[in-house]
């Protein structure tokens, strides 16, 4: 078990100052991530404003049931993540590892379902490009371009989160966290919840706009 001196980086006075700097650093990164995804959401708003009918029609070709299931899976993974942070704060290492593993598992199921959706859509020629075909709707192709770009970028973030949380689980198993040093788990949690929030907005914009 590392003594507090090893966990403390030399530029900080104490662990609570270090923890605060870590937290604000992550929030700053998340603010840049908001703008990263924001550009794509903006493109979506502009083109859906121009072609509302074509977007609704294209949206009806997405997998509503799988998308809804995936939303529930990701929301549940946020619960297990929040519980993992709680275990880290209470210095319950076993619980921490179990809950991180559950979160990684749920994230992996999310990606597997998303991959199945991509497979189905590509085989139905919905991937924009030379083989795209949705009768009478070249404008619907813009919807699918945005669909693949936005969900693809989101899936990369889920993958990054899975790697990050797996790393945290390994560190926890190696007893690198203590009752006063656990902020890597906390800020990894912030990142995971952010990725969940992005999906909370993607879900209605992709799957639900053609239902009525």
């Amino acid at each position: 078990m590392p003594e507090p001196a090893r966990a403390l980086a030399e530029q900080f006075d104490d662990l609570s100052q270090q923890r605060e700097a870590c937290e604000l650093g992550m929030w700053t990164f998340l603010a840049t991530e908001v703008l990263f995804f924001g550009g794509l959401f903006l493109a979506y708003i502009v083109y859906r404003g121009e072609y509302p009918q074509e977007f609704a029609e294209a949206s009806r070709r997405t997998e509503l049931v799988l998308g809804t299931l995936n939303t529930a899976i990701l929301l549940t993974s946020s619960l297990t993540m929040a519980l993992a942070v709680q275990a880290a704060r209470a210095f319950q290492t076993r619980q921490l590892v179990v809950r991180l593993t559950l979160t990684v598992l749920l994230g992996s199921i999310f990606l597997a379902v998303k991959g199945f959706e991509y497979h189905k859509e590509i085989s139905e020629h919905l991937l924009p490009g030379a083989h795209y075909s949705l009768a009478g709707s070249k404008r619907g192709e813009i919807f699918f371009y945005l669909y693949f770009a936005m969900t693809g970028l989101h899936a990369l973030h889920v993958l990054a989160g899975i790697c990050l949380l797996s790393g945290m689980a390994v560190l926890a198993l190696r007893r690198r966290f203590t009752s006063v040093y656990y902020h890597p788990v906390e800020i990894s949690g912030l990142y995971w919840h952010f990725v969940d929030i992005v999906w909370v907005f993607l879900y209605p914009l992709i799957y639900l706009i053609g239902l009525r």
Binding site: S78, A82, L190, H193, F194, I197
Partner: peptide, 8 residues
Amino acid sequence: LILLFFMH
């Protein structure tokens, strides 16, 4: 809800 409670 996520910001206030899950992200503390």
